[in-house]
Amino acid sequence: MKKILFATTALVATAGFAAAEVAITGEAEMGIFNPNTEAQETQFFTDLDVRFTMTGEADNGLTFGATIDLDEAADRSNPGKFESPNTQGGENMFVAFGGARLTMGDTDGAVDFAVPEMGLAGGSLNDDETAHAGFNDADGFLDGTIFGVADDSGLAFDGAGDGQVARFDYSYDAFTFSVSAEQLANGDDVEVTVGTETFDLGSTVWGVGVSYSGDLSGVALTAGLGYQTIEDIGDITSVGVTGELTNGLSLGATYTQFASDIDGFDDIEHVGVGVGYSMDAVAVGVNWGQFDQDGDTIEGWGLAGTYDLGGGLSARLGYGKNDFSDVGGDDYNTWSLGLRMNF
């Protein structure tokens, strides 16, 4: 990916800084898509995203940086929300020294950071391969629904609060250990009443995780284990592993369980598998996943294909199938086709 740097790489030397750098990167996409083949017609697809990335290094070797994603910052219902210090609007920042790193803002909780997802190769304009009903993106609790006809589902607690996540990582050899926190209501305790029962949720989503990334007998192995909890709501435990062979083939599997503390609300389990292949300019990925709550299931599978045309330009195809038949919902498919430009 090309980086456009200000002021001839924007390297600045002052008494307080050893070096600082500012860069702009972005993507543009154009094509056609259908977000619901049962209810909508094929439409034009155009999208643009721009990021500003700032990095620096202090005299003592401490590194620091920040990123603002304009696609996330330009919230239609809350313009300029990234300017508010108690919410995140697409911005994150970090400080690091050696193997230790503290990141705050628009970043992953410990589960999402540690456990690999099953979109192993390729990509689409409309994220068809990772937005189907059976994909666990570990972001949000079933996309804000309890269980049933939901798409773009995640089984984790990221986003349960104000979206500001603080995560500390420590890397040693091939392992990274993580702990994260997200405030539910700017630090205040939260109580929710359902019927006649009141739940004390506390004030924080806590998470821990550990991940491994290294070479094992010629296989590029990535594995992760994560745990998140909200008081009186329940615990989420997730584990995943992926392996990439030298011939371009990659395989993966993941398992996640939500253990409920809510009376009358059954536990939820998710399983997912993925297969990918990358060689030269071609990348193709297929994944399948299923959520299960007391025998009721929703599931889906996704396909993504990419052909690299060089210079940051690629052709992309995506397809997603959403199956709600077991819970009485309407099945539907999604697809997209077009070009992506990386700058």
Rank of each mutant, 00 (worst) to 15 (best):
I236Q: 04
G243D: 12
V239P: 04
F265C: 00
T229K: 12
T242Y: 01
G252D: 07
S250R: 13
T256H: 02
G264H: 01
G243I: 06
G243A: 05
Q228M: 13
G234M: 05
G248Q: 06
D235E: 14
E244L: 14
E244P: 04
Q257W: 00
G248P: 04
A259L: 14
G252L: 05
T237N: 00
F258G: 08
E231T: 08
G252V: 04
I236A: 07
I236V: 11
G252P: 02
T229M: 13
Q228F: 09
V239R: 00
D235C: 09
I230K: 00
T242H: 00
Q257L: 09
G264A: 11
S238R: 02
T256I: 03
F258E: 07
D267C: 07
D263G: 11
D261E: 14
T246A: 15
G243P: 03
A253T: 08
G243Q: 02
T246V: 15
I230H: 04
V239D: 01
S260H: 10
A253L: 12
Y255K: 02
T237D: 00
T242D: 02
Q257Y: 00
T246H: 10
L245E: 04
Q257N: 13
G240T: 04
A259R: 06
D232C: 09
I230R: 01
D232E: 15
L251C: 09
Y255I: 09
G264I: 00
G264E: 07
I268H: 03
V241G: 03
L245M: 15
G252R: 03
G243C: 09
G248W: 02
I230D: 01
S260E: 10
T237Q: 10
A253I: 14
G248R: 06
G243K: 08
A259N: 15
N247A: 14
I233A: 15
T237F: 03
S238V: 06
S238M: 06
T229S: 13
T237P: 00
V241E: 01
V241S: 02
T246D: 14
F258R: 01
E244W: 06
D235L: 08
A253F: 12
S250P: 03
T242P: 05
I268M: 03
D267M: 01
G264N: 11
V239H: 05
T256A: 13
D232N: 13
L251W: 11
Y255A: 10
E231Q: 11
T254K: 11
D261F: 07
L249E: 03
G240N: 07
L251F: 15
I230N: 08
S260W: 03
T237L: 12
D267E: 10
L245G: 14
D267L: 10
D235F: 05
G240S: 11
L251Q: 12
F258Y: 10
F265Y: 13
F265N: 01
Q228E: 14
I262N: 08
